[in-house]
């Protein structure tokens, strides 16, 4: 008898809960609003997760120190070392040349190459989503201290007070800013004077000459007349 009563009680209890909860959820306007709020909350949560994933994924550049097929050692210009993990299925590897990318293999990554790695990073380990073999450029500015027309080079005192020799070659893009209009045009070596301000871009490659001597990719001269006004 007791068992029958208990069974009836529990059965009615569960049925009432489920029926009431279901009815409340589906029929009243407040439950519709609630569902909408839950949906919005889910969407916000998903967007936050995506944002955090994006935040965690970053790009780090450096020079390859070793390549072990599924793992690449990399050292940044600040001398921080990273382990770059390559997933054969997921990691895409490209070489950039003239603003075009070409897919290459992990075995094509050579020691000494400059790479940009993107992917989630944790504790100096990057799980690479993408690896780009890129060209490394250095930019800077300073004052022209010597113009050598015969050997076609400029001696520069940089903003950091370092002396630099920049060779101007046929491919070097030479530009000057007009002191009045600020327009940028081309310039020959003969128009560049000691005391002019210069902005430059070069590849920091060993030229086999002085340590501080490089081939300029491009220069932009700000004539001293601009500052005399």
């Amino acid at each position: 008898m007791k068992n029958i009563l208990l069974t009836v009680f529990v059965g009615v209890f569960i049925f009432t809960i489920s029926t009431f909860a279901q009815t409340t959820k589906e029929s009243t306007p407040s439950s519709t609003r609630e569902t909408k709020e839950i949906q919005e909350f889910k969407e916000k949560l998903a967007s936050k997760v995506a944002e955090l994933q994006k935040k965690n994924s970053k790009a780090i550049s450096g020079i390859i120190t070793d390549n072990l097929a599924t793992r690449v050692g990399m050292k940044t210009l600040d001398n921080v070392t990273y382990e770059v993990k390559i997933d054969r299925e997921l990691t895409k590897i490209y070489e950039i040349a003239k603003s075009q990318k070409k897919e290459i293999k992990a075995s094509d990554l050579k020691k000494g190459s400059y790479i940009v790695v993107s992917g989630p990073e944790s504790g100096r380990v990057i799980n690479a989503n993408y690896i780009y073999v890129d060209e490394r450029f250095t930019t800077g500015s300073g004052k022209v201290t010597e113009v050598n027309s015969q050997e076609s080079y400029l001696k520069i005192l940089s903003m950091e007070k370092d002396t630099l020799i920049l060779d101007l070659e046929v491919n070097t893009r030479r530009q000057i800013m007009d002191a009045k209009t600020l327009e940028i045009g081309t310039v020959g070596l003969s128009r560049i004077k000691e005391g002019d301000t210069i902005h430059y871009v070069y590849k920091p490659e060993d030229t086999g000459r002085e340590k501080n001597r490089f081939t300029a990719q491009k220069i932009l001269v700000i004539p001293q007349e601009y500052f005399l006004k």
């Binding site: 009563l5 009836v8 009680f9 009432t16 809960i17 009431f20 909860a21």
Partner: peptide, 15 residues
């Protein structure tokens, strides 16, 4: 009585 209390308790818990 069992049905009555079952319904009552069920309603309270659901609310």
């Amino acid at each position: 009585i069992a049905i009555f209390f079952g319904v009552l308790l069920g309603l309270i818990v659901a609310i």
